[in-house]
Computed example of a mutant assay.
Amino acid sequence: MAKQISDLKLGILGGGQLGRMLIQEAINYNLTTLVLDPDTDAPCKHLANYFECGSITDFDTVYNFGKKADIITIEIEKVNIEALEQLEKEGKQVFPQSRVIRLIQDKGVQKQFFKENNIPTAPFKLVNTREDIFNCGFAFPYILKQRKDGYDGKGVMKISDVADIDHAFDAPCLIEELIDFEKEVAVIVTRNSKGEMKTFPMVEMEFNAEANLVEFLISPSTYPASLQQRAEKIAMDIAASLNITGILAVEMFVTKNGELLVNELAPRPHNSGHHSIEGNYVSQFAQHLRAIFNLPLGDTRAINNAVMINLLGEKNHDGVAKYQGLEKIMAIDGVYIHLYGKKYTKPFRKMGHVTVVDQNRDGAIEKANYIKNTLKVIS
């Protein structure tokens, strides 16, 4: 007799806020959760049934942790792939599959995958050293990205002239044409082992220019239905080409002439889906669990207009976190607060998010702007 979902142990590599929100959803299924994270004060520590402090990039640590679980998933891509491959060989279920994580760990391999599968993306070139950048043949300005280990705006820089190259990364990198885009958007697609797929409605993102992090996320998009359908098809085509099991966030640029160009992928719950907890019939976290346990996928439709605001640590504040203005925003209707349980703040660290749900889109945006100016994470 096949085991029920509540009889299975879910191992999560990474114990940050994504793992925390995944566990909060897993509790509804009576799932046993096991978490591995290097931080002794990780946000998941007190929520998981079992918490282990250890490296998620060390073969032995990941392998021995994985043996304790029935299904293994990730909340961050920087994990030991060789250990996951060995666990798969021994019959453990790893979702997303280790081959998918390996591909997405390297932005250069990601871009080559787009090219080979006719996925629209910005023109690019791969280089191995800083010296190679001088002869890349790209017109200034362009974007330089480290192929590995970049996240949340780190490992990315704009190269405007030859002088900038002197300060460029001296490592394998991806050079990308600078796209004069109108808006960055995202579609989250989920696929289970049966091949069933569903997409969440496309969302629009607004960035903090200084930190290069998403500041606002607005759902649903007001772009024409034809463009949204194209974006959803691109996301599904990628998920099908990868043969992925689990959730996949697809970030795209909308160009000034209405083209869609894929920027990057994330094979896990993603910042661009946090609004779905209150704003959609099924959340991205519930959908990911449904996919990796090969259950029917949920209804992804938006219930209402939703705006998500990332709570970032304030500049010049480094220490034990304090939340200034919390009571003021709690007095507003339709406001949902998510604090991530991180003891210490530092400039631009993701400390939580707030979602505003409102029948009126402009009203939701107005509330979001008030929250941005009122709620501060200080030390």
Rank of each mutant, 00 (worst) to 15 (best):
I133T: 01
V250L: 00
D60A: 10
K198F: 02
K92A: 09
Q228V: 03
F114N: 01
E314R: 08
I179D: 07
F59C: 10
A171D: 15
I74V: 03
N135Q: 14
L217D: 06
I179F: 02
P224L: 00
Y142K: 09
F114H: 00
S241M: 08
E88P: 12
L248C: 04
I56H: 13
C53Y: 03
N316L: 12
K256M: 10
L31S: 04
A83R: 02
N271W: 01
I72N: 09
V79F: 06
D237R: 00
Y281A: 09
E177M: 04
I74K: 02
D70N: 08
Y29A: 02
I175D: 00
R191E: 04
G108M: 08
E215Q: 13
A235S: 03
A69G: 03
Q86G: 14
I188S: 04
I165M: 06
V320S: 14
T61G: 09
T345E: 11
I309A: 11
G11C: 05
N28T: 13
P296G: 06
F59D: 10
V354A: 11
V185C: 05
E85L: 04
P201Q: 04
I378C: 08
K346M: 14
Q93M: 14
E327V: 09
G19D: 05
L227H: 00
G352Y: 01
M157W: 15
E210K: 07
G54W: 11
G16W: 09
D299N: 06
L312K: 05
F138E: 09
R349T: 06
T121H: 02
K67L: 05
I119S: 04
I143N: 13
D106I: 11
L265M: 02
E90F: 11
M330L: 15
K367H: 14
K92M: 09
G150Q: 02
N305Y: 01
K92T: 07
N280G: 04
K89N: 15
G319P: 01
L260F: 05
L126T: 14
F181A: 08
G273M: 03
L217R: 11
T355S: 13
N373E: 15
I5N: 05
N117Y: 11
G279Q: 02
T345M: 12
E259A: 07
K67G: 00
Y323N: 06
L174V: 15
G195R: 01
L260D: 00
D58H: 12
Y151P: 02
K256G: 04
G15Q: 05
D237P: 08
S221C: 04
E88R: 03
N316T: 13
Q24T: 10
V185D: 07
N294I: 11
N257A: 13
A291T: 06
N28W: 06
G273I: 03
V354M: 07
D41V: 15
G363D: 07
K372S: 13
N212C: 07
A231P: 00
F207S: 07
T245A: 05
R361P: 05
H270A: 01
A368H: 13
A231Y: 00
A211W: 01
Q105D: 09
N243C: 04
G246N: 01
G195I: 05
R230A: 13
R147S: 11
T40F: 04
G16N: 07
